[in-house]
Design a protein around this nucleic acid. Structure first.
Lengths: 189, 189
DNA sequence: AATTTTAACTAACATCTGTTAGTTTGTAGT
DNA sequence: ACTACAAACTAACAGATGTTAGTTAAAATT
C-alpha cells in the first residue's frame, strides 16, 4: 500500500493548519515543518496543495450529501428528519471538526470541476433542508414563522458548531445532540 | 483633507474582495485592479495591507463594544436587552456586511497589538452576552435550557447574518429584525 | 544477496507578493 | 504665470511560494 498512512497524515495536519490560518495563509513549508520534513518531500505523497484541499473538503461534502439523501428517502416525520440532520452535523463535528472548518471557510479556493461539484452538492443539501422545513410548516408540525429565517437560523448554527466544539469538552456527542435538539427544535415547535 | 475619500474607497473595495476570497488570497494588485490603478498607487493613501485590515475590523469591533456597553448599563429586562443586541447585529449587517465578513473570517490575520485588542473586545462582548442570558434564566424570563447552547445558537446566528443578507433582498432592516427576534427569542421564551 | 520501492533529502526554478524610490501629471490657490 | 500638492505612474527589490529534478538511504521484496 503506497504511503496511504502518510498521505492521511498530511491531510490531517493540513486541515488543522487550514483551520487556524485559512488555506491561502498556510504554505507547503508550514505543513512540512509541522511534520518535521521538507516541503518537497510532501510531493512524494500528494500531487499539489490544491489536491490536499480537495481531499479534505469533498469527502465530507459527499458524506453530508449521502446521509441527507437517506434522510429524505425515509418516511419519518419532519421533526424526526430534523433530528437526524442535527445528529449528522454533530457526528461529523465531533469526528472531524478541522475538515469542517476548511469546508466552511475555504471552499471557494477549490478550482473548476471540484468547485462546481461542491457548489452543486451544497445547493442540493440546502434545497433538501428547505423541503423538510416547508413540509413541517405545511403539516403543522412547525410554527408558521418566516421559513427562510428558520432555515438560516438552524442551518448556520449546525454549520458553525465546529467553532464551538472543543472549548466545551464536557459535552460528548450524545449530550451535545440532545442539547442542540432542545434549543433548535423544541424551542421552535 | 488629504485623500480621505480615496482611502475610504480602498477600504470599501478591499473589504468586498476580502469577503470573496479571504485576506491572504487578495493581493494589493487585486485591490488596485478593482480600482483601475496600479498597486503602488495605493500607498499614497494607506500605509500597508495590514492597515487596511485593521481599519476594516477595529472600527466595527469598537462599535459592537460601545453599543453592547450601553445595553449593559440600561435597566431593561433581559429580553429587551437581547432585542437590542439583535438590532445591533442587524443594523451593522445591513450597513456593512463586507466588513463584518472580514471581522468574522480574517481577524486572526491582525498582528500584535491590534490582535490582542480585538480578542479582548471579543471576550468582553461574549462575557456581556453571557451575563444577559444567565440573568434571563435566573429571573425566569428564559427557559432553563443549557445556557452555553442557547448562547452559542443565538450568537452564531447573529454573527453569520452577513452570509445570508443580500440573497434575501425582500427583507429590510426592520422586517429582518422582527423575524430574527421571533425565531431566536419567542421561539425560546 | 540482489533488486526494487518508499520516502526522505538538496538545489533550484519561475512566479508572485508587499513595498519602496523616484517621477510625472493634473488641479487648486496665490 | 507660479507654486504646491494630491495622486497617479514606472521600475525595481527582496523575500516568499508552489513545484520540479535529481539524489540518497533505508526498508521491503524477490
Amino acid at each position: 500500500m503506497k504511503s496511504l498512512d502518510r498521505k492521511t497524515e498530511i491531510i490531517t495536519i493540513a486541515a488543522k493548519l487550514f483551520k487556524e490560518k485559512g488555506y491561502s495563509a498556510v504554505t507547503m513549508r508550514d505543513i512540512a515543518q509541522a511534520m518535521d520534513i521538507k516541503a518537497a518531500s510532501l510531493y512524494n505523497h500528494i500531487k499539489s496543495k490544491q489536491e490536499i484541499l480537495v481531499l479534505i473538503i469533498i469527502e465530507i461534502a459527499e458524506e453530508f450529501t449521502k446521509v441527507m439523501n437517506e434522510i429524505m428517502l425515509s418516511d419519518e416525520t419532519c421533526i424526526q428528519k430534523i433530528e437526524k440532520v442535527i445528529q449528522l452535523h454533530v457526528d461529523i463535528t465531533v469526528r472531524d471538526s478541522d475538515a469542517l472548518a476548511s469546508l466552511n471557510a475555504d471552499w471557494m479556493h477549490l478550482a473548476d470541476a471540484e468547485l462546481a461539484y461542491f457548489i452543486k452538492m451544497r445547493e442540493e443539501y440546502e434545497e433538501n433542508f428547505r423541503k423538510i422545513i416547508m413540509k413541517g410548516i405545511a403539516d403543522g408540525e412547525l410554527k408558521k414563522l418566516n421559513p427562510e429565517v428558520i432555515i438560516f437560523s438552524i442551518h448556520t448554527t449546525l454549520r458553525t458548531l465546529y467553532l464551538w466544539y472543543g472549548k466545551k469538552k464536557s459535552l460528548n456527542a450524545s449530550v451535545l445532540k440532545s442539547n442542540m435538539t432542545q434549543v433548535l427544535l423544541h424551542g421552535i415547535v
